[in-house]
């Protein structure tokens, strides 16, 4: 299915560096015209493409440890693009692109059945329960490169696909067909003050993301780097967001294990 020179954009998030500061979330909101309401404390009603989770080792004081885990759309490949959400959409409003590996979401096609939300184990898909409204004048800060979603549709992180589109335009203008690694970076990657997020083409051995996790193509994209893991790898989602952590309990929190299973199952 994959073509010769197709790309597979993916992300590596170093949880040792991530400080949970929330810059990725806010950068994403500002870049992608995420609406906001007076009360956004019910996170299950709030739209935020990037969400930072707090993980804990569940030990009492003073052995408590915490880790912060930013979670964009995992852009699952599943097997041959069969991500959990794509195949369930009845109206073909979401799709897997073999050239980029990005799971698209077309808001104007979506009619809000929410099957994809039910299918996604990462909760990356969020519904527009309300009309997105901006206080008078604030709509001036909207980014014209990202369409504003209407009430009643599902939305999710797009890996800032508009930046890819714009980068390609620039390349075409300069007579190039291909773009460089640094020409297409997501807003969260760019904003992260700790430099915890790396973005690039997982098919390209020259790209940093490839070098950081060394995805094993023969083994469903599993990382060869022992510090790397993906969320819920055992479900077969074949996600394109990798996490790095030097802490065993953090890596183990990335997936479900039976009590009988050993400590180093993820490797």
């Amino acid at each position: 299915m994959e073509k010769e020179n197709s790309k597979k954009f993916g992300m590596v998030i170093d949880l040792d560096k991530c400080t949970g500061c929330g810059s990725c979330m806010v950068a994403c909101m500002a870049e992608n015209n995420i609406p906001f309401r007076e009360d956004e404390t019910d996170k299950l009603l709030s739209v935020s493409w990037m969400h930072v989770y707090r993980l804990t080792n569940v030990k009492p004081f003073p052995d408590t440890e915490e880790c912060y885990l930013p979670r964009p759309c995992q852009h699952c490949e599943g097997h041959h693009g069969h991500s959990p959400c794509v195949s369930v959409c009845p109206a073909t409003a979401t799709d897997y692109d073999m050239d980029t590996g990005i799971v698209s979401q077309i808001y104007t096609r979506c009619f809000g059945c929410r099957y994809c939300m039910a299918a996604c184990p990462y909760h990356v898909r969020q519904f527009n329960w309300w009309d997105p409204l901006w206080p008078d004048g604030m709509e001036k800060s909207l980014n014209p490169n990202v369409s504003v979603r209407m009430r009643g549709v599902v939305e999710k992180c797009s890996f800032c696909i508009h930046r890819y589109q714009l980068a390609k335009d620039q390349a075409y203008m300069e007579g190039r067909r291909e773009i460089e690694e640094d020409e297409y970076q997501t807003a969260c990657t760019q904003a992260c003050p700790a430099g915890a997020i790396t973005f690039g083409d997982l098919n390209n051995p020259k790209h940093a993301v490839y070098q950081m996790v060394k995805p094993d193509k023969k083994n469903g994209g599993k990382p060869k780097n022992p510090k790397a893991f993906r969320l819920l790898e055992r479900l077969g989602t074949n996600a394109k967001v990798y996490y790095l952590s030097s802490r065993e309990w953090v890596r183990r929190a990335g997936d479900n294990y039976l009590k009988t299973e050993g400590q180093a199952k993820h490797a």
């Binding site: 909101m29 995420i34 906001f36 404390t41 707090r54």
Partner: peptide, 13 residues
């Protein structure tokens, strides 16, 4: 945006 990013274990409603 900042208030939106505040965790639900810090602020609820």
């Amino acid at each position: 945006f900042l208030i939106k990013s505040v965790e639900d274990y810090i602020l609820t409603a």
